[in-house]
Design a binder for these strands. Structure first.
Length: 860
RNA sequence: GGGAGCAUAGCUCAGCUGGGAGAGCACAUGCUUUACACGCAUGGGGUCGCAGGUUCGAGCCCUGCUGUUCCCACCA
């Protein structure tokens, strides 16, 4: 027997086990009878545990997957975990420092990696357990990890292929360097933050002339690596100086003045110090003018041996020292405040340093072209559409991708360097000897790959690629990808060009973008703020279904949402409402009620019509990934129509043992459960298992289909409901206690509709006895009258009413009605409207006008 | 410097292809109505940011403005 209150804790583990035991999550690659529907899970990072954003994302994916499963697709939700290179390495390093007081360098590469694997095993398992709590219907048998054997094979294959295609190269370039993580980063891993800095104007003496040339810089310490000063070739002020030499202060070097178009005459002084090793533009200028390159910062962003007396100083200290020395020399002309963007490491938030360094790069132009085309042509589409612009803008301006990282945790680059001749060998198998000189002294590149290098292969590496596995053949390309807007570049873009380049097809046709979950004040949930909400706590408090419903309902596509406990409470209440409605139904329905019976009453036809409308709309919303709207409609339908009205309407019939009402209730409830199942899977399955006549789990039931609609009867029922609402409102206004029943006379043209509903009208409108007639009473004395579109209602309650007030009220209603009539008549008299508006709209307005006129007549 | 989003009830937000201004919470009043107080009924509360335009008709489409958030970008 069902408890009075739904208790998720008792239900959820039991139901999840039932699903697992039933094998419902498993997708069979040998099943060739059904169309497939696949989503690859964005693999959570092994850094720690699931956060609220994962709950949001997993809820969305599970809704889509469960809907498709019920529609009969061979459905695969492919789960897994990401090794998350830098992020995890940082976490483990932090952990080791705190727990054991050691650094990774103390341990050495091998030993350190053992610790990371230990971490991975612990947190990877925990993440999967947490994900299961959310009710996710993943095919856990296929769970993958970005550094498992298969993924590693895929990574190596891709690296080698790109190398063979000439799309991967090792080169000396300016890259973003994080001095704390001591690794290179890609452009996409740098966050730019606007901050107030300074613009220092420094005088550089021109050789053999008492004159100076003033440069403006935001990073004065880099002047130690200057190898030129550049001016615009068309700048009249400096034309005569081009080719001359400047004595670089604080050093003993002399550097040329060159002319380059890159220099803006308007900005600063129009003279730019050129520091090829510490600025990407300067690097380009240096290439054009064949300038010397001097690196002055080391991997910790401290001045190196090229910095003369500043050697060993951190960049911050070096800056102060340089400024002080320049001031002492009288070479600091002025200092201005200056707002500019400073790059920060995505992971540790340290300010990045542009540094020239030998790194591995993926050449992007060729790869980007088809990835741009497939979105432009609509082969791959973003939902909502606006994100395709974000994607295209990035892809069209993409620069080569720096993929090497000076880390230990990750896929080690499969390149081997001959220690004798310097030859680089990139191969699928570890080479035994150098192909050029025959030396066996080969050393593997110590760097690892960007973590996103392996993530980019996720949709097919998880299916077995590069091997032609049955799973790959069956499930690739996948259908949908769900991801947050913040990783469109980092991940989405790279999966798309990877899929096209290696398999000839984009990895999915639809990218559903979601926003992020913020705290109740709209702030990002973060560790430093301590405002993160643990989804597991919320599950314990309100239940998984309430959590899922709360993150889905009323959230616009691609929009951020906020966490409010009140919203979870509302959804828990909703679950409880559904629970109790089902409990009520179970008190009446029998296995004989599973088939819809003939002889439907007005209210039956109404609720069935509404159900079928909702089925159509919700299905449509789901097909368009409008999950929030779909969930909202179901909430409203179940609570506001099924529970508040239909169940109340049929109570008298159920007490009479009416089997027709039972069969309708059964149908509406079961279809509602099915429609709700993708959103709130646990409670719907639990109720389903309790219902009579159920032979299979709801998770694999057929998605409901609309049946015969009764639009006229549905409208008729709405008129009866209007009358009930009107009576309730008047009684409430007049403070008539519900216990005080009063006789009711209904004067209406639709006598049949009201006649059939006498029993429930009595219950819902507090009527003792009801007379339905088509003729108005001769005398209105002592009667309170109410006017609705379909009826005039008379209650012997006049003694409760101030007659003057009542007269005024009627006059007010009349005036309002007349004003509406006037407006409608004007509208209908407008040929522009009648000829141009769609006929059904015009017709609707005509009907409305007629109804208003009827009301007017009754009010006279 | 580019691009995008948002601005709707006290709060948080829905509103899909233009035709009814909505929900939850909060608030007020009244209810032990035989599923549910995690409940029921009723009610108050909005110039849909501002100004124009298109249209028979605009919260929705167009233009401009204001405020706000975010993304991208190599003016030192």
């Amino acid at each position: 027997m069902m408890e009075k209150t739904y208790d998720p804790k008792q239900v959820e583990p039991k139901i999840y086990k039932m699903w697992l035991d039933g094998g419902y999550f498993h997708a069979d690659e040998n099943d060739n009878t059904r169309e497939t529907f696949t989503i690859a899970m964005p693999p959570p990072n092994v850094t720690s545990q699931l956060h609220y954003g994962h709950a949001f994302e997993h809820a969305m994916i599970d809704v889509i997957i469960r809907h498709k499963r019920m529609q009969g697709y061979n459905t695969l939700w492919m789960p897994g975990i990401d090794h998350a290179g830098i992020a995890t390495q940082i976490r483990v390093e932090e952990f080791l420092r705190k727990e054991q007081g050691v650094t990774r360098h103390d341990l050495g590469r091998e030993k350190f990696l053992e610790h990371v694997w230990e971490w991975k095993n612990k947190y990877g398992d925990r993440i999967i357990e947490q994900s299961k709590l959310l009710g996710t219907s993943c095919d856990w048998e296929r769970t993958r990890f970005t550094m498992d054997e298969g993924c590693s094979k895929a990574v190596r294959e891709v690296f080698v292929r790109l190398y063979e295609q000439g799309l991967i190269y090792k080169g000396d370039r300016i890259i973003n360097w994080c001095p704390k993580c001591t690794t290179a980063l890609s452009d996409a891993e740098v966050e730019h933050e606007e901050s107030e800095g300074k613009l220092w104007h420094i005088k550089y003496p021109i050789k053999c002339s008492g004159e100076f040339l003033t440069v403006a810089t935001t990073r004065p310490e880099t002047m130690l690596g200057d190898t030129a000063v550049a001016v615009n070739p068309n700048d009249e002020r400096y034309k005569h100086l081009v080719g001359k030499t400047v004595v670089l202060p604080l050093t003993d070097r002399e550097i040329p003045i060159v002319a380059d178009e890159y220099v803006e005459t308007e900005f600063g002084t129009g003279c730019v110090k050129i520091t090829p090793c510490h600025d990407p533009n300067d690097f380009e200028v240096a290439l054009r003018h064949d300038l010397e390159r001097i690196l002055v910062l080391d991997e910790n962003a401290c001045v190196n041996e090229n910095g003369g007396k500043y050697k060993g100083l951190t960049r911050e200290k070096a800056r102060l020292a340089v400024i002080k020395d320049l001031t002492d020399l009288g070479l600091l002309e002025k200092t201005e405040t200056h707002i500019h963007n400073v790059g920060h490491c995505d992971r540790c938030k340290t300010i990045c340093e542009p540094i020239s360094s030998k790194q591995w790069f993926v050449r992007m132009k060729k790869l980007a072209a088809p990835a741009i085309e497939c979105v432009k042509s609509g082969e791959v589409r973003f939902v909502p559409e606006r994100f395709s612009k974000v994607y295209l803008n990035w892809m069209e301006n993409v620069r080569d991708w720096c993929v090497s990282r000076q880390l230990w945790w990750g896929h080690r680059i499969p390149a081997f360097i001959c220690q004798d001749c310097g030859e680089i060998i990139v191969a699928r198998e570890d080479p035994a000897a150098c192909g050029k000189c025959g030396s066996v002294r080969l050393e593997q590149e110590s760097d690892v790959l960007d973590t996103w290098f392996s993530s980019a292969l996720w949709p097919f590496a998880t299916l077995g690629w590069p091997d032609e596995t049955p799973a790959l053949q069956r499930f690739y390309p996948t259908q949908v990808m769900v991801m947050g807007y913040e990783i469109i570049f980092l991940w989405g873009a790279r999966m798309i060009f990877s899929g096209i380049n290696y398999l000839g097809k984009p990895p999915f046709h639809t990218v559903v973008i979601h926003g992020m979950v913020r705290d109740s004040e709209g702030r990002k949930m973060s560790k430093s703020l301590g405002n993160g909400v643990d989804p597991v706590d919320v599950i314990n408090e309100y239940g998984t279904d309430a959590l899922r419903m709360s993150v889905i309902t009323g959230v616009g596509p691609g929009n951020d949402t906020r966490y409010f406990p009140e919203k979870c409470e509302t959804m828990r209440n909703f679950c409880n409402k559904l629970w109790n409605a089902s409990r009520f139904a179970l008190m009446h329905v029998t296995p004989e009620d599973t088939e819809l019976k003939d002889g439907l009453c007005l209210e039956d036809k109404w609720i069935l019509t509404r159900l079928y409308q909702v089925i159509g709309e919700v299905t449509d919303n789901l097909e368009r990934y409008e999950l929030g709207v779909a969930a909202g409609k179901l909430y409203d339908f179940v609570w506001g129509e099924l529970c508040d009205w239909y169940i109340e309407l049929i109570k008298p019939r159920l007490l009479d043992g009416d089997t027709i009402a039972r069969s309708v209730l059964y149908r509406v409830l079961t279809d509602s459960l099915k429609l709700l199942h993708p959103f709130i899977p646990y409670i719907t399955e639990e109720i389903w298992q309790t219902l009579p006549g159920m032979d299979k789990a709801i998770i694999v039931c057929d998605w409901p289909k609309a049946g015969k609609m009764y639009n006229n009867e549905a409208a008729g029922m709405e008129r009866v409901m209007d009358a009930i609402r009107a009576i309730r409102a008047r009684r409430s206004e007049l403070n008539v206690p519900p216990s005080k029943k009063a006789p009711l006379t209904i004067v209406t043209e639709n006598t049949a509709d009201f006649e059939g509903g006498k029993a429930y009208i009595a219950r819902l409108a507090g009527a003792s006895e009801i007379t339905v007639t088509d003729t108005a009473p001769k005398s209105r004395d002592g009667l309170l009258s109410l006017t609705t579109t379909a009826a005039e209602l008379f209650l012997p309650l006049a003694e409760l009413v101030d007659l003057e007030e009542e007269k005024k009220r009627r006059e007010k209603q009349l005036a309002k009605t007349r004003a509406e009539i006037k407006a409608l008549e004007a509208k209908l008299a407008n040929p522009g409207f009648t000829s141009k508006a769609p006929p059904q709209v015009v017709e609707g307005e005509r009907v409305k006008l007629e109804e208003l006129k009827k009301i007017e007549k009754k009010l006279l």
